[in-house]
Computed example of a mutant assay.
Amino acid sequence: MASAREMRLRIKSVKNISQVTRALETVSASKVRKAINAVTATRSYATKAWQVLRHVAEQPGRDSLHPLLAHRKSVNNTLVVVVTGDRGLAGAYNSNVIRFTSQRFDSNPVPVKYIAVGRKGRDLMIRRGKKVIADFSNLPAAPSFADVSAIGRLAVEEFNSGAVDEVYLVYTDFVNMGRQIATVKKLLPLDLEGEGLVEDFGNKSTGPAAAYEYEPDMREILDEIIPRFTALQVYQAVLESQASEHAARMIAMRNATDNAKELVGALQLAYNKVRQQGITNDILDIVGGAEALAAK
């Protein structure tokens, strides 16, 4: 059994750790509120942009409307944009994203290349031998569209150049504080298989989609909105992932603080037992010495 001094040092160490975890929980609670506000502010616009992309892709002759809508005759390479965090201490947040990505793409019939958004995801994928062609780490705490747009531009350039034939986006969808879901979305070319057209107010249309009228020029408009809306989906995914990361870290630090309190209680009880045992032994030694003197 450990000595009383060792028990005191361990109790002090656990208390110090609990102070750190409590501080991290407080910081994450502040950041998650800001992240949720950012997600809420942009989610409606990103959703409508996604609906516009899907509507455009449902137009007759979609392959001739824009190169980013055209399906390739054969798929020879796949690009996956994986969004994780730059820091740990968020429970299983980062490992869950990488595990989900591995389950989805390890058995892919064609070679897969990755764009890593977040240092933790990059390190985990490199450790597993994945081909990472680009790394976007140390994004601002509150990223703007300009901070993230380079990711979307790179994905569009890889697709336009013919280096890849399809692009997927893997991120964590923020549902609520206690639930975040790893999600995969096909960015390029836009895939509508199995999806009905979502009209305004969330109603689904089962009939043919109404054709858009473009002014002044269809090609000019599509050349502007399709790459921009594609990059917007990446931006929204980053915001969703940041909110999920802060929520996961807050919960993980809260659990760590609670566990530290329980451990301190258990160690304090063990320390009291050791201390009581030491006092009892000292009393026995004194009584034994007194009896020995009395016997003489």
Score class of each variant (00 low, 15 high):
205 S>Q: 08
166 E>Y: 11
111 P>C: 06
123 D>R: 12
102 S>F: 02
136 F>S: 02
102 S>T: 09
199 E>C: 11
135 D>K: 11
139 L>K: 00
152 G>C: 00
190 L>A: 03
151 I>P: 06
138 N>F: 07
180 Q>A: 04
151 I>N: 09
166 E>I: 00
156 V>M: 01
184 V>H: 06
172 T>Y: 03
146 A>Q: 12
157 E>L: 07
183 T>P: 00
157 E>T: 10
158 E>Q: 14
166 E>R: 11
180 Q>T: 07
197 L>K: 01
105 F>S: 01
126 I>M: 14
149 S>T: 07
130 K>G: 11
178 G>T: 12
109 P>M: 04
210 A>N: 11
121 G>S: 13
148 V>F: 05
210 A>C: 13
163 A>C: 01
177 M>Q: 11
196 G>R: 09
177 M>H: 12
92 A>T: 10
211 A>E: 13
101 T>Y: 10
136 F>T: 09
110 V>K: 00
101 T>M: 06
159 F>L: 09
100 F>N: 06
190 L>M: 01
185 K>W: 12
197 L>A: 03
156 V>Q: 10
162 G>S: 09
132 V>I: 06
158 E>Y: 05
100 F>D: 10
132 V>L: 01
202 G>T: 02
123 D>A: 05
147 D>S: 11
125 M>H: 03
157 E>W: 01
212 Y>Q: 14
92 A>Y: 06
121 G>V: 15
122 R>T: 00
100 F>H: 07
136 F>K: 03
126 I>Q: 06
92 A>D: 06
136 F>N: 12
210 A>K: 08
188 L>G: 12
146 A>G: 13
127 R>A: 09
138 N>I: 00
108 N>A: 13
106 D>V: 11
197 L>Q: 02
181 I>W: 03
93 Y>K: 03
112 V>L: 08
175 V>Q: 12
101 T>A: 10
199 E>D: 15
99 R>T: 03
138 N>W: 04
131 K>G: 11
117 V>E: 05
207 G>L: 03
158 E>N: 14
151 I>C: 11
128 R>M: 03
140 P>R: 04
112 V>N: 09
108 N>S: 15
167 V>R: 07
207 G>S: 04
200 D>N: 12
213 E>I: 15
158 E>V: 00
90 A>W: 01
126 I>N: 13
106 D>W: 02
184 V>G: 08
142 A>E: 15
130 K>N: 07
197 L>P: 00
173 D>P: 08
212 Y>S: 15
130 K>E: 07
95 S>Y: 12
121 G>T: 04
115 I>F: 15
206 T>H: 12
190 L>D: 02
107 S>G: 03
131 K>R: 15
104 R>S: 13
175 V>A: 06
172 T>W: 02
134 A>P: 02
179 R>P: 06
113 K>E: 07
170 V>A: 05
157 E>Y: 05
150 A>H: 13
182 A>N: 11
116 A>L: 09
187 L>M: 15
191 D>K: 01
169 L>Q: 02
129 G>D: 11
141 A>Y: 05
171 Y>V: 06
152 G>F: 03
95 S>L: 03
141 A>H: 07
166 E>C: 09
120 K>S: 08
139 L>G: 05
